[in-house]
């Protein structure tokens, strides 16, 4: 389970090929691992290290810096309730209390059935729609405590399955660069002249 499946391994190679240096693919590959398994496993980090040519320590070194990566089993639904300024001004703490009460856990915890993980999050960039929250990074705007209860009920009953994929999946559309259209990544040190559309005589593009 932890190793990339065949489809994801092909996707991983496709992602790595887009970067002039493979280590740049580290964060996208951690996302891919999290999408496959719901969180980032040790096994996945070892494989990513092999794929991009760094040590496993470097993979966790980078990965642990970023809040979205989870290194332990996480609920199918990660509920992030914003607690920053505009949401706080408009009652974000009531949302958090409603979620804690309904789920029977504190912020930071996961329900025993593995369905929900609850977090108090920092600004989610929807400040005019405060107070807001995200479920697996899908927004719910202008929420109320009742709305939070309803949302949890809907998620439990599977009524939002079409809209909200399990934790780990971000965009459901991936970029694909067609082989006949892509320019391709080039080693930065192998380039010594200006690109074709910049005449050598005026190189510097107007500078």
């Amino acid at each position: 389970m932890a190793r990339f499946n065949e489809t994801n391994l092909a996707t991983a190679h496709e992602i790595i090929a887009r970067y002039p240096r493979p280590k740049s693919a580290l964060i996208p590959l951690l996302h891919l691992a999290q999408e496959q398994d719901g969180y980032v496993t040790d096994e996945a980090m070892r494989q990513i290290a092999d794929l991009v040519g760094v040590t496993p320590a470097e993979v966790i070194g980078t990965g642990s810096f970023y809040e979205m990566f989870r290194f332990e089993p996480t609920g199918r639904y990660l509920i992030n309730i914003c607690g920053t300024m505009s949401c706080a001004l408009l009652g974000a703490s009531d949302l958090l209390h409603a979620a804690e009460r309904t789920l029977g856990i504190h912020a930071g915890g996961t329900t025993a059935d593995g369905m929900f993980t609850l977090h108090q999050a920092e600004c989610q960039a929807a400040c005019t729609e405060a107070p807001c929250l995200q479920v697996n990074y899908r927004y719910r705007f202008r929420m109320t405590p009742d709305g939070v209860e309803q949302l949890i009920d809907d998620l439990r009953a599977g009524r939002l399955d079409d809209e909200i994929p399990p934790h780990g999946t971000l965009a459901r559309v991936r970029q694909h660069i067609p082989a006949d259209r892509g320019v391709g990544a080039v080693d930065p040190d192998a380039v010594d002249g200006p690109p074709a559309w910049i005449p050598v005589t005026v190189e510097g593009a107007g500078s």
Partner: peptide, 9 residues
Amino acid sequence: DIVLHWGAG
């Protein structure tokens, strides 16, 4: 080429 890259928080 334009390459799409996601951050992670």
